[in-house]
Design a protein around this nucleic acid. Structure first.
Lengths: 245, 245
DNA sequence: ACCTGAACACCGTTCAAGT
DNA sequence: ACCTGAACACCGTTCAAGT
């Protein structure tokens, strides 16, 4: 590695080999790394070709040798991130609980990476890490006795629910930059919504007005848990009871 | 209206009152109208401030007198579109079916307006039309005996599912412009996915490889129906049986 | 093969100036 | 009050040219 002795200063008149070599040789990996760093710090909107290139000390055109376009970069980011999801070993006795554990784990990983869930929505999962997750979910439903067709659709429905929830979580926390106290801002907004609902004409919206508390409660984990429960109950209802349709 | 006699040509030397008056006086309504026209024809991405302004024969700056920013315009578009949703009159005996009917109706309206569902995802519904839909859903669950807390969360979960499905539907049909046969393109892509799944290592992805048919079937209505069924079954499971949590 | 500068055809938003 | 031109600070992508 060291063909040079760094303890001696460069002799006068000797030029460094290159003016300013890019710190790291460009590659798909370092591009995705950098993009994720920007994502974590400033959200998906900040991940532009130009911004990523700048972060790497080069121009935007240089990225196109390693990534076909911005959409591909986003999908590569998603698959990298989903690699952080830790999956349980299938335990037939706990298939419903483990299905929930996976959902919680995906949610944890997504919400720790800005609004990456936006990339996932409406995308057929083909990246290796997303496939591994689907495989684990299918395995749990198989041992649980869920009919294959239902299981396939359930993977879809679960994915949609997790994605949509993660996006919702980040929309309000990421709407304002990281400089403001996002959580407090969200609560202020929630209070505005509550007041707005309460002020609605009760004759036109009797159910909404009568359920303001329920509609604006559980902002986070609790709400997610309940929705998940609805889904898992629905899935479990097909065990030994084929769909009527 | 006519203070001028249009059958006679303008006398020489008489100038028309104004050089080229904008066809319609600018207003929030005509801006939203125009934006939706662009959405229907070319999708949400094409709805830019500049494009809408151009369509109205003016500059982008002119829109800011009627709309605070692009995000507000998008939300106004969403609420306008949801006004097309036709709601059933609550029939207690058919609450589950009617809940499904509403879901289908929203899906129909969304998919007929490009990828407008993208605006809905992760947005607390506050527009009058979205509130009317939520009110109808809550009413059905109330007469069905669903506990209020579950009903509130179910509105959320249903919304997420419908939104995510509508986005998925449009991602692949709208990805290529309207000039190509989008449906055929989608089928070709689906076949690629099938071949890709089939070629996966069966020892690592036994469930996926063994369920290729189920995983890539029902592209449209059928898949939506099944997912909806899972959700409604889950919701119904709470009737006279409070949540364990 | 990989990288780059410069250009092309776009963005959202602001603001001083006009009517 | 409403509208506008011009400007500012950005975009994604292409392409001929360099090494």
């Amino acid at each position: 590695m060291a063909t040079q002795r760094p303890d001696l200063p460069t002799p006068p008149g000797r030029k460094p080999r290159r003016a300013a070599p890019a710190r790291q040789p460009l590659s798909q990996d370092v591009i995705v790394d950098t993009a994720i760093r920007v994502l974590d710090a400033e959200g998906l909107e900040a991940v532009t070709m130009r911004r990523v290139a700048q972060e790497l000390g080069t121009g935007p055109a240089s990225l196109y040798a390693h990534v076909s376009d911005k959409e591909e970069l986003r999908e590569l980011m998603l698959d990298r991130v989903t690699g952080e999801v830790v999956l349980p070993v299938t335990d037939p006795a706990r298939w419903q609980e483990q299905l929930k554990e996976i959902a919680h784990e995906i949610r944890r990983v997504y919400t720790s990476h800005g609004d990456i869930a936006k990339v996932s929505i409406g995308l057929i999962p083909t990246g290796p890490n997303l496939l591994t997750i689907a495989e684990a979910q299918l395995d749990l439903m198989r041992v649980g006795g869920v009919p294959p067709k239902i299981a396939a659709l359930a993977v879809d429905a679960l994915g949609m629910y997790i994605d949509a929830d993660a996006v919702e979580d980040t929309v309000y926390t990421a709407r304002l930059g990281a400089d403001e106290d996002a959580w407090e801002h969200f609560h202020r907004y929630l209070n505005e919504v509550r007041a707005y609902f309460r002020g609605l004409p009760a004759d036109r919206y009797p159910n909404i007005v009568g359920m303001v508390a329920e509609l604006t409660s559980g902002a986070g984990d609790e709400r997610f848990e309940f929705g998940l429960d609805i889904l898992i109950r629905g899935i479990a209802s097909y065990v030994d009871a084929p769909p009527s349709a």
